[in-house]
């Protein structure tokens, strides 16, 4: 047994020893110097800036950008006071597009399945479930993203509630276009007579690709915007139709 152990011991002892490589001591001294710098806090100032300050600044810039962009998207412009001095219906028709106000889309709120008529006699389809409340101001075709009736703001600085979006189909429906929307745009399947869209010359079969410069997709539109002009493709030709005011 002991002989076997001695054999094992001799086998192990017979292994050729390895040596430290050239430059070993220099590497150790380099590591020691690095360790001294770290322990004495002697790192260059620029290194500290890169490690702590720059990420913090980038984070703050990113946060600020997100806040500003969100504000820009959802912040409704103040609507001019209308109140008691607002024009009569006939007068309004002569001056501006009709005001369309769609009832709030709330699961707890009863909804009329049938199309509603506004006081100008224009039929307005109910927006799809889950879509955002929208309203058109009396002075232009500005669309508000939330349930804000511009007539009730009376010129105050009140802002619409934050969040939500409007489906393009809902917006087009308000000006008399029944459409099917896809990522490439909204195809007008019907243009109701006597509506803003019909007056502007929109035709069935037009592919509406942008509202006032904003690309129209199947996804919702956030923020306030005006329907001053509609970009569409008709028979392969791209054209822009202005519907701003009558």
């Amino acid at each position: 047994m002991k002989d076997q152990e001695e054999q094992i011991s001799r086998l192990i002892a017979g292994l050729r020893p390895v040596e430290a490589p050239e430059g070993f001591e220099g590497m150790v001294r380099t590591k020691i110097a690095e360790g001294r710098r770290e322990s004495s806090g002697g790192r260059p100032l620029i290194w500290l800036a890169a490690k702590f300050a720059l990420p913090l600044i980038l984070l703050m810039l990113l946060g600020g950008f997100l806040i500003v962009s969100q504000e820009g998207d959802i912040n409704a412009e103040m609507v001019p006071p209308v109140g008691d001095s607002r024009p009569e219906v006939a007068e309004l028709d002569a001056v501006s597009p009709p005001v369309l106000d769609v009832a709030a889309t709330n699961d707890s709120t009863p909804r009329n399945a049938a199309p509603t008529s506004d006081r100008n006699g224009l039929q307005v389809d109910q927006p799809p479930r889950g879509s955002q409340d929208i309203a058109l101001s009396p002075d232009d075709t500005t669309v508000f993203p939330s349930g804000v009736d511009p007539r009730r703001t009376h010129g105050t600085n009140s802002k619409p509630p934050i969040g939500g979006s409007v489906s393009p189909a809902s917006v087009l429906s308000m000006i008399g276009i029944v459409s099917n929307c896809s990522p490439s745009g909204c195809l007008a399947t019907e243009v109701r007579e006597g509506t803003i869209a019909a007056g502007a010359g929109i035709q069935t079969g037009d592919l509406i690709t942008a509202l006032d410069g904003r690309p129209v997709t199947a996804e919702g539109i956030t923020g306030q915007f005006s329907i001053g002009e509609i970009t569409l493709v008709r028979s392969g030709a791209k054209m822009t139709v202005s519907i701003a005011r009558r």
């Binding site: 020893p17 390895v18 040596e19 430290a20 490589p21 070993f24 001591e25 150790v28």
Partner: peptide
């Protein structure tokens, strides 16, 4: 001690590069 320590660590780890690193450490 650099050679004995390197050799000791090499026989322990069976990895020369690692042994040299740990010897320096």
């Amino acid at each position: 001690y650099k050679n004995p320590i390197t050799n000791f660590l090499y026989r322990f780890l069976n990895d020369y590069e690692e042994a040299v690193d740990l010897a320096q450490e």
